Amino acid sequence: MTTTPPRVPPKPTPRLEVRNLVRRFDRRTVVDDVSLAVEAGQVTCLLGPSGCGKSTTLRIIAGVDVQDQGTIHVDGALVCDTVFRVPPERRQIGLMFQDFALFPHLSVAGNVAFGLPRGAEDRARRVDELLERVSLSGFGPKFPHELSGGEQQRVALARALAPRPRILLMDEPFSGLDERLRDGIRDDTLALLKEEGTAVLLVTHEPHEAMRMADEIALMRAGRIVQRGAPYNIYNAPVDREAAAFFSDINILRATVEGALTRTPFGEFLAPAVPDGTEVEIVIRPQHLKIDFDRGGRGPNPTPADGTAARAAVVRARFMGRESLVEFRMDEGGQVLKATVPGVFLPGAGTVMWLMIRRDRCFVFPRRG
């Protein structure tokens, strides 16, 4: 008797797919072989420092800039390559910028309705529906100068969503808002985008924003995507030291590999498949340093996962609000390490303590440069 293997459903076509995008200005490559895909209802963040090519990538996808190589596809259909180009207004791609770009001479309702076909039967109904969904019912007759920054941002969101774009491109859309407003408005925006089922590509240089909003993060550096993945994975498995440092402060211990091991004040670390004599960097985030008080020089009894305890003295301690930041100078080698502790922890300068680091919270990378 033969059995029929279960049918594997076909993989859905991405709402947006970018393949091998390249953009050069003079002799400088600003976007270097960028490929990514965004599904319907997914939020992908292009994250990276200023000047890494994020906004240029967004402009090319929107159609306001032209690539030197590569293709862009929407729902599997070619939108543009280096010869063929669908005009920006026919791509069904919405745009939101950091300055909101509202028309000052149009009312709130006029701004939201701007992208809708004139004479459409449901035009007024769509405007009212979106204003209600962004908590601006009754604001239709007002003008942009009468609104707060947060209200202007919500009008810009409603205007971008009014034509029901298949894709929404957002370029630093929350950077102009007061910090206290951002989290609430980001959450409301995300909820609305999910309801609409819009594929979102968001550009930001703020790791906190990317971690809060994204289903997937594409980390860019010098025009290239160096790592892609879910926020949890990209934070806990960085591809290199720079990727780890982009999301938080880091401590770096430098050592040389001997017999697949590196020796540090915290004991030996495994460095499999790394040739002897290679210099490596052991990266540990401040929140993963464990602290114990000195007990007459005897030190704590760490678990195997904590490795060897190393003696250090407090340089200074500062209360940062939710946590305290403590800087230590190691007895062995004199290196300064930072540790963060939840709540208030302010030992005096010179206080001798013991530090431990968990092996499963460390990253070992070959040293570069």
Rank of each mutant, 00 (worst) to 15 (best):
D276Y: 05
P265A: 01
L253F: 11
I284M: 09
G267M: 02
G267L: 06
T256C: 00
I252W: 08
A260I: 02
V274W: 02
A271T: 14
A260F: 07
I250S: 07
P275H: 11
G277M: 05
P272M: 13
F269E: 01
P265Q: 08
T278Q: 08
V280F: 03
E268Y: 03
E281N: 13
R263V: 08
L253M: 14
V274D: 04
I282H: 06
T264S: 04
T278P: 02
F266P: 03
T262H: 00
T262Q: 03
G267N: 04
G259I: 09
G267K: 12
I252Y: 01
L270V: 12
F269K: 09
A273Y: 08
V283W: 03
T278A: 04
A255L: 02
L261Q: 14
G259V: 10
A273C: 06
T256S: 01
R254F: 00
R254I: 02
L270G: 15
V257F: 07
R254A: 06
T278M: 04
T278G: 08
P275Q: 13
I284D: 06
P265C: 07
N251V: 09
V280H: 12
E279S: 08
V274R: 04
V257A: 03
A271R: 02
T256N: 00
A273W: 00
E281L: 07
T256F: 00
T262L: 10
A255Q: 02
G277N: 05
G277T: 07
V280E: 12
E279K: 15
G267D: 00
G277A: 10
A255H: 00
A271I: 12
T256H: 00
E268L: 06
G267E: 13
T278S: 14
G277D: 04
F269N: 00
P272Q: 14
F266G: 05
T264V: 11
R254K: 14
N251Q: 05
T278L: 03
N251F: 05
V257K: 08
I284R: 13
G277H: 00
L270F: 09
T278V: 13
V280I: 13
A271Y: 07
E268P: 00
E279W: 02
R254Q: 12
E258Q: 11
A273V: 06
R263E: 15
I282T: 01
F266T: 06
D276H: 09
A271G: 04
A255K: 01
I284G: 12
V274Y: 03
G259W: 09
A255P: 03
P272N: 12
T264C: 03
A273T: 15
I252E: 09
P265N: 11
T264G: 03
A271E: 05
P272L: 10
L261Y: 08
I284H: 07
V283C: 15
A255T: 11
N251C: 09
I250C: 10
L261I: 04
F266C: 00
A271F: 09
V274S: 08
E281M: 14
V283A: 13
A260Y: 09
E268T: 10
F266I: 04
G267C: 06
I282P: 07
E258T: 15
V257S: 02
P265Y: 01
A255D: 05
G267T: 01
A271D: 04
E281A: 11
I252M: 03
V280T: 10
V280N: 06
E258H: 10
V283Q: 11
F269V: 10
